[in-house]
Amino acid sequence: MPDLLDVKGLETRFFTRDGEVHAVDGVSFRLAAGETLGIVGESGCGKSVTALSLMRLIPYPPGKITAGTVMFDGQDVLKMDDDEVRAIRGNNMAMIFQDPMTSLNPVLTISRQITEALELHLKMNRTDARKRCLELLEMVGIPSAKVRMDDYPHQFSGGMRQRVMIAMALSCNPKLILADEPTTALDVTIQAQILELLKKLAKEFGTAFILITHDLGVVAGMTQRIHVMYAGRIVEKADTGELFANPKMPYTWGLLRSIPRLDESRRAKLRPIEGLPPDLINLPVGCCFAARCQYKRDVCTEKEPELKVVPKAKPDHEARCWGTQEGGWLVDVDYRTDTTVMAAVGAAS
């Protein structure tokens, strides 16, 4: 079966007064129908820009997709004309945004904002669209949906609004949902509910989804595979279980160390990754992570490594790191027992 989504060499830049921002720089990945994928990385690494690029929603100017192909359902989204892209948006490919407080139109009723897409893509009339809207709202767990469907967004709580966003995304039975940090703006307790709902509904409808987050903890039970992004590139790809059990790239190690763990003693400090991501206008020579990497060697600052299958791991596990490639100095290092970082932290404090 062909992939639902096949992204190759995606490159998106912003042409700003300060220079060209290389927000997404050669991202490639694939997704089968019904598959779930997590994209994880620090703030500013290009996750949102990647998702928006897939739907061609990058604001121009200043943004522009400068290279790559995005094959969706057998067609290259980047080569479509505007009408063709619009026919896909909200229909076959839908998006859930980060901030449910600002992502709904404050002056339109909830029902109107959902029926709009139904009327547009499924050619429903008002009555049928409202009926379907009610079904959708009940499905995402809006209590007394019948009464509340004609409320305005400000009358809903953040969690409710994100449920509305999910209902909106599911309304036309899309094949793919892009969820860009759907729970970041919500309370922790609500977060879990929303993620559960998304997972359950996507499974029910066989919808593939890409869950974007900066928190590895969030994707753990949610997606089949995880791609870790850094400075506009994918630096590690693996099955979710494999990534947590056998991570390869020092950046991923850093992310894992910064997740709070229940089984660790309370005295064990969280260890955020030191330093800042590189400036996306003036990217460094060599590996983008080298400046912050505790394990770097000369080669790391001379030449950029490619994303390669790593040895001693599952076959589709790839990493972008000189140290983890065949014969590299990190192949046998286990980040949990390794003392290099501990020593470094100790020396610093």
Partner: peptide, 26 residues
């Protein structure tokens, strides 16, 4: 520049409908 305009575009609305239905009233 508002988020909800991006949401409207993500629904697949034409630019004209986005303007009429979502931008002007606000």
């Amino acid at each position: 520049r508002a988020d909800f305009v991006r949401t409207a575009r993500a629904k697949g609305l034409r630019e004209r409908s986005v303007l009429r239905g979502h931008v002007l009233k606000n």
